[in-house]
Design a protein around this nucleic acid. Structure first.
Lengths: 333, 333
DNA sequence: GCGGCTGATGTTCACGTAAACATCGGGACG
DNA sequence: CGTCCCGATGTTTACGTGAACATCAGCCGC
């Protein structure tokens, strides 16, 4: 910076003013300084700037894994939104949902200079004093919640589950089976609860719940069990990957989809439209969730603590060929 | 830090020594300081540390998109490897493969304080003085290359393509069609070249090349075309998603896989084993590529410029049910 | 017992920046 | 014509840390 100042024949402070786009710099001076910056290949030093201003212009993202489609899309959206606001993004992956690993991730994030943290962890952090956060550090929770002391942004999990379940009932299925996500997942819990609630509300019997770990393998195993029964005509899987596993099991055992069994997924991953048959599923607007999360976090960072409520982003049902009326209805209707 | 020093009754420099785990601090003093740090909730200031030491302990990752399975896995591996070495990771997504966007991404990365950059961009940056990088900044190129002035780590694209093509020929197919990735992709080009080379070496005719954009939709379109011909018995798709699109098209048009047509993919995404039929595909070891990339980058950062060669990580073929001998052979054999 | 040596600890300083304050020159107005 | 004010620019300083150097106490060998 000194060099630039000397080169342009001004003080370093004027260079600083130009670099930060402040008002009161004469046009000619500004131009001269910019040329000098160009000529000398000047780049402001992030560390010094952060030291002086107390701002890193960097947000931290804590996630469990990138292996789930939803997380990946979320990260994509968050990265874009952050970049648009001039913030970079530091990613920390949390190994396991243990208290230790989560705390450790926060420590790493704090030590690495972030202005705020976006927590994208679907498990129940909820219950907890588990996660002890230094007060005053802006924080937004994504896709998980019961604590109301932080802003929360999320997809409308209950709404999506309701759409899926109701769609199957509307087609004439007597009831709907559910392949839920892992128990510690808050998203999984909410989808499960709403599925049950819709069935009860409609006065239907609630079949036993099956749990998977989101993987196709889990879906496959569940599919083998379901296919062995002859009273199963409709299944709602808590994500597309498990739904794919179901489809595979049904194919192998010769159960026709949707002729014998209708299947609905959740996520609308890009591959879902090319599954065989193309999968009816719940589309989540991850872009919107990512954008709004960043927006909320930056608001907290720049304007201090604000709203702490939950912001819910709507989901919608995408109907494809994996769902149809049950055979009995189709025949008589 | 001052506060901690006062609290522990030592100088700030001693606190610094404890914080950095240096040798010559008496055990009792060290313990006292650590207790004080605990008591006051002291956290070293990253910015000041970076300013003083010139090291950010942060590596930058430049990627095009997270939407491809490979990139996502790579990022996962890179994040873990970096964390293991005490580095955090700053992610910058490059919008489009234009020179402008790429340069812009580098600028952002440089301004945001990184010690080195990992470029995970599959397009031909190669040709270029396109990308003008400040000399002296450690850089490792992943999954793309022709420039030899930087270390490069990559999957064995050619090897994978060879395994896939040869597998189909070995099954008795007269020739193999190829649905390639987009032309600007270097990975796509290498798979394409090796496929052609294997066919030529075996003295087979080389069918016209089709290009897709990695998406299932592109695979579906290509599949509709291929299914319309009756001389197609084997297709090698440049990734699993396009292979999935092929499968869908073949299902819709009643072509049996692998009875009428065998299909091989590339990537071995977790879903591939649950496609219908389960997909024969080339497995890439993204974890290994990610780890070695970080390793190479950290070596450059900490020991200065070193090796500039290419490190190739082997791939392997995973045979599932989407490939079989062609019907003519199966009948006579 | 004294010089010199070693290891623990304290003191000083600079890293690059931006805020706060100081200065300077020119125009408006009485 | 002098005063005041305002905008442009310069000067000073502190942010928190770690390297370099200074100091200081104890211990060894002669």
């Amino acid at each position: 910076m000194q060099d630039v100042a000397k080169h342009a024949g001004v003080s370093s402070q004027t260079v600083s003013r130009v670099a930060n786009g402040l008002q009161n710099v004469e046009e000619s001076t500004k131009k001269r300084v910019q040329e000098s910056m160009q000529a000398l290949g000047y780049r402001p030093n992030k560390a010094a700037r952060a030291l002086r201003s107390g701002r890193f212009h960097n947000i931290g993202v804590a996630m469990f894994t990138l292996s789930s489609y939803g997380n990946m899309r979320m990260l994509d959206a968050v990265a874009s939104a952050a970049a648009d606001s001039g913030y970079s993004l530091t990613l920390v992956l949390v190994g396991k949902p243990t208290q230790h690993d989560v705390s450790d991730a926060f420590d790493r994030l704090l030590e690495h200079g972030v202005d705020g943290i976006l927590i994208v962890i679907e498990a129940h952090l909820a219950d907890a004093a588990v996660v002890e956060l230094p007060a005053g550090l802006p924080l937004v929770v994504v896709d998980s919640v019961t604590r109301s002391d932080y802003p929360v942004v999320d997809n409308d999990q209950a709404g999506g589950a309701r759409l899926a379940t109701q769609h199957l009932l509307d087609l004439g299925h007597e009831t709907v089976w559910h392949l839920a996500g892992p128990e510690p997942s808050y998203s999984a819990t909410r989808r499960l609860d709403e599925w049950r609630s819709v069935l009860l509300h409609a006065g239907r019997t609630v079949p036993p719940v099956m749990h998977g770990d989101w993987s196709t393998a889990a879906g496959y195993r569940a599919g083998l069990e379901l296919a062995a029964r002859d009273d199963v005509t409709a299944v709602f899987a808590a994500n597309d990957q498990m739904a794919l596993g179901l489809l595979r099991a049904f194919h192998e055992l010769g159960r026709d989809v949707p002729g014998d069994i209708s299947v609905v997924g959740y996520d609308d991953m890009p591959e879902a439209e090319s599954f065989w048959p193309p999968l009816t599923t719940v589309h989540q607007n991850f872009e919107s969730v990512g954008q709004r999360s960043v927006q909320a976090l930056l608001a907290e960072i720049e304007d201090g603590p604000g709203r702490t409520g939950t912001l819910v982003v709507p989901t919608r049902l995408v109907v494809r060929s994996s769902t149809a009326a049950p055979r009995a209805i189709a025949a008589t209707g």
